[in-house]
Design a protein around this nucleic acid. Structure first.
Lengths: 159, 159
DNA sequence: TATTGTTATACTCTATAACTATA
DNA sequence: TATAGTTATAGAGTATAACAATA
């Protein structure tokens, strides 16, 4: 587990040498990039009084109206965890449970209009933050990075 | 509520068209890659009955013997959060608190030998997992990805 | 007065197990 | 029996506020 100290807002010392692109290596580079992105998404979420998990749930619900079990599966959680997640969002009027027309045991989870609005805003902000991370790369570098990230994800990865 | 992170005004190219297709690739690609890496690190941590945060703490303690406040700062946490973190690790014999020789208010947090052993193992495993994510890229692509990730991180930390 | 660390409190997130109501 | 969802419970992780000891 690489160290990956996240960006500290209180860091007193500005970088003395601005442009010294040291290669951290694949593992450390990706790990640190991952934490940087995670931190950025956390800020976006916090700006709307949400957690990262809530934000991911909103991402899932943008395109779907899943049942609780399916929602949990999308997020990699147990169904009981999804219950609380949806409870808290529902209390704030961001999502809604509706009875499924086909199965009386099941519910359909959907974003409310307010939830959709928030999801749209957060999507834009997340894009800005992530884009800012790559702001000083050239256009070509950004394109390459985008391509390589997609390529890595496309592979038969998981262990 | 006190979210004072406005979008970077220095962004040179605001999206002229409503739906900027070029950026969506970058943003989604990096976001998903970030989650994939996070998940991989989570598996490594879980394999040792640790959380990702504990794993990061171990990374910090590999090179340092910080005080509680400094440890918290490295992890981006409040000092009160670090108390519990260290408590739980100490109960398992993985870290140790020692009185600071210079400041009687302060303690020094250090890995025990068992903690060091675990940190070494986890480092190796994390490397393997991240490598597996990029296993089907060519050597050149991996090198590029490594370089681009480092370059992105080297830049002026945004937001 | 300021700083270091802990405690008290409250909340989110998470899983396991047990429960209900369907199927 | 099997599945969908909830509840009960327990624990980690987090922050804020208040506190004690020390600087």
């Amino acid at each position: 587990m690489p160290h990956t100290t996240p960006p500290r807002p209180s860091d007193p010392e500005p970088p003395a040498t601005p442009t010294a692109p040291t290669d951290l290596g694949l593992v450390d580079g990706l790990a640190q990039l991952s934490f940087a992105i995670h931190a950025a998404l956390g800020k976006v979420a916090a700006g709307h009084d949400l957690s990262i998990v809530q934000l991911r749930m909103f991402g899932v619900l943008r395109d779907r109206e899943p049942g609780m079990q399916e929602l949990a599966r999308h997020l990699g959680l147990d169904k009981s965890s999804a219950t609380g997640l949806v409870d808290r969002a529902e209390r704030r009027g961001l999502v809604r449970r509706s009875p499924s027309p086909h199965d009386r045991r099941s519910v359909q989870v959907a974003l409310t209009e307010q939830g959709h609005q928030l999801a749209r805003e957060a999507t834009v902000e997340a894009g800005q933050h992530i884009h800012a991370l790559a702001a000083h790369l050239t256009d070509e570098q950004r394109a390459q990075l985008s391509l390589l990230a997609s390529a890595a994800l496309a592979g038969p990865a998981p262990s």
